[in-house]
């Protein structure tokens, strides 16, 4: 049985046609199911667990990158197969998973090609795509073996599903982060040369790792899959093969 979780932004008129076309296509494939709408007050994990008790085998997220991160970071521990129907502009994760944006994603969903994906864990919560630490005076220890420091502030991005592009000019051939390699990738970018207009960013350092601790004397801002918090110390670990996901043939791993 399929359950579809629609993001709130799909209520807008401009997505009406796409949503209708998707629902028709799903019916044609025989994989239409229960539709539930998410909003700011819904507890995603509770909803999914209720549906699993009622017999749901596949939970399909319908939305964009934010919807994807929001749902999976809260329900990674649920024992169910996840699918994704990307709609809208902000859908870079869809390309990594080999899913076309829009109606054509239904074809991929019907084929049901499954893969186990790694997921990151930070201070009692999961993150699927990225974890971002804003420029701060941080000290990073990797796998309890070595530590990395910099002269001034450092910005840190931990990637699981897709790399982080600081400049808008994305060079897609540069780096592909693999969600099944048993490692998370950390991109560290120190700030240097304080000039009158601000800091200069250096080229990023790259460290693949399984476990990392980030510490600082003062609280720093952490954003994980869209959720922001302030921490003094965070422990980041890899949860290997945690998510059972329907992916496409053109996936980038």
């Amino acid at each position: 049985m399929y359950v579809y979780l629609y993001d709130n932004f799909l209520r807008q008129k401009k997505y009406e046609n796409v949503v209708k076309a998707i629902e028709i296509r799903l019916t044609d494939f025989g994989i239409a199911g229960k539709i539930l709408r998410l909003n700011n007050y819904t507890d995603v994990k509770e909803i999914i667990e209720d549906e699993i008790k009622r017999g749901a085998k596949t939970v399909v997220i319908v939305g964009d990158n934010k919807t994807f991160g929001h749902v999976l970071s809260r329900s990674a521990t649920c024992n169910v197969v996840f699918g994704f129907l990307p709609i809208g502009k902000d859908n870079s994760i869809a390309g990594v998973l080999g899913l076309p944006v829009g109606v054509d994603a239904c074809d991929v969903l019907s084929r049901r090609k499954r893969e186990k994906l790694d997921i990151g864990w930070m201070n009692n919560r999961y993150f699927v795509s990225q974890l971002h630490v804003m420029p701060s005076d941080i000290e990073v220890s990797y796998d309890e073996r070595f530590k990395v420091t910099s002269k001034d502030k450092t910005e840190l991005v931990v990637c699981n599903l897709q790399p982080f592009y600081w400049n808008k000019s994305k060079k897609e051939d540069d780096f592909v982060v693999h969600p099944q390699d048993g490692k998370l990738e950390a991109f560290l970018r120190p700030l240097t040369k304080k000039k009158w207009w601000g800091y200069n960013y250096e080229d990023p350092s790259v460290f693949p790792f399984e476990e990392m601790v980030v510490k600082s004397r003062s609280p720093f801002v952490v954003e994980a899959d869209g959720k922001r918090s302030k921490e003094i110390k965070i422990k980041i670990k890899l949860a290997s093969g945690k998510i059972d996901m329907v992916v496409g043939r053109d996936r980038r791993f």
């Binding site: 070595f146 530590k147 990395v148 420091t149 910099s150 592909v176 390699d181 120190p190 693949p208 791993f253």
Partner: peptide, 30 residues
């Protein structure tokens, strides 16, 4: 069918940047 070779952890380069200092037992598979 396109055969996707699964890149393993040993194919990822570790880069220590210009003003970055690493202390300890620094090991990498790549």
């Amino acid at each position: 069918p396109k055969i996707y070779e699964t890149p393993q952890a040993d194919e990822v380069d570790t880069v220590v940047g210009l003003s970055v200092n690493v202390e300890g037992d620094f090991a990498s598979e790549g």
